[in-house]
C-alpha cells in the first residue's frame, strides 16, 4: 500500500504527472477574482473565506479523473487487481496520494493566497486548518467518483456531476467555519463536522470503491 502511494506521488511529481495543476488553478482563481469584482477591500475580505474554500474544492475536482484513469488505460489497474493488494487498499493508497499532491499543498498555500484577498493571517490559520481536515474528504469522494466512471470516455463530466453533490456538505461546514472566524467568533467545535465527514469517508468509501472497481474491470 505504501509502495503504491509512493509510486503515485512520484508519478505525479515527474513530468506529465499533473502536480501543480491544482495549485496553479487555485492561484489563477484567487489572483483574477479582485479584477473581476473590483478592488474594494471590504467586499474581498467578506467573500474571501467562501471563495478560497470553493477554489480549493474545484481545484481538487480538476485532477480527480486522472486518479484511476491513467492506470486503467495502460493496464496497470488489471495487474493491481490480480496482485495480493486488496482493491480497498489500492483505493485508499491512490486517494491518499491524490490528497498529498493536491489537498495538502492547497491547504498550506491557502493562507498565503488569502492575503491577496485581504484575509488576515489569523483567519488564514483557521482556513488552513479547516482545509487540512476537509480536503482528505474531497480526495476520497473524488477517488470514489473516479472508480464509478472508470472506462467512460471523457468521464470527467459525469464524474463532476456525480461528485459535486457529495462535496456540498464539506463545502458548507468548511466555509461556515472560516466565515465565523472572520467575524471574530470562537471555533467552538465547528471543525468537528468537517472531521466527521473525512472519517466517515475513510470508513465507508473503500468498500464501495472496491465494488465499483471490480464491476468496472469485468
Amino acid at each position: 500500500m505504501i509502495q503504491l502511494f509512493t509510486r503515485d506521488v512520484v508519478l505525479s511529481v515527474r513530468s506529465g504527472g499533473g502536480f501543480g495543476l491544482a495549485l496553479v488553478f487555485f492561484l489563477i482563481l484567487v489572483v483574477l477574482m479582485p479584477f473581476a469584482l473590483g478592488p474594494d477591500q471590504s467586499v474581498l475580505a467578506k467573500i474571501a473565506p467562501g471563495l478560497l474554500w470553493l477554489g480549493a474544492l474545484l481545484a481538487c475536482l480538476l485532477s480527480s479523473d486522472r486518479i484511476f484513469g491513467m492506470d486503467y488505460e495502460d493496464g496497470t489497474l488489471e495487474l493491481l487487481a490480480t496482485s495480493p493488494l486488496p482493491l480497498e487498499s489500492v483505493y485508499l493508497a491512490k486517494a491518499a496520494a491524490h490528497w498529498f499532491t493536491t489537498g495538502l499543498p492547497l491547504s498550506l498555500a491557502a493562507p498565503v493566497f488569502g492575503i491577496l484577498l485581504n484575509l488576515n493571517l489569523e483567519v488564514g490559520g483557521v482556513l488552513c486548518l479547516s482545509l487540512l481536515l476537509g480536503t482528505p474528504a474531497l480526495s476520497l469522494i473524488g477517488s470514489f467518483g473516479a472508480t464509478l466512471t472508470l472506462g467512460v470516455r471523457r468521464g470527467g463530466l459525469l464524474l463532476s456531476l456525480l461528485v459535486l453533490p457529495l462535496y456540498i456538505p464539506t463545502l458548507i461546514f468548511g466555509a461556515l467555519t472560516v466565515n465565523a472566524a472572520a467575524l471574530g467568533k470562537e471555533l467552538d467545535g465547528s471543525l468537528i463536522p468537517i472531521l466527521a465527514i473525512t472519517l466517515g469517508a475513510i470508513a465507508i468509501l473503500p468498500f464501495f470503491s472496491a465494488m465499483a472497481l471490480r464491476a468496472n474491470l469485468q
Partner: peptide
C-alpha cells in the same frame, strides 16, 4: 499465488525500467 500478464503491460513511462 498467481501472477497475471495481460496484453496491456501496465508500464509507467516516466519511471525507469528498474523502478
Amino acid at each position: 499465488s498467481v501472477a497475471y500478464a495481460a496484453h496491456a503491460e501496465g508500464i509507467k513511462g516516466s519511471m525507469s525500467v528498474f523502478e
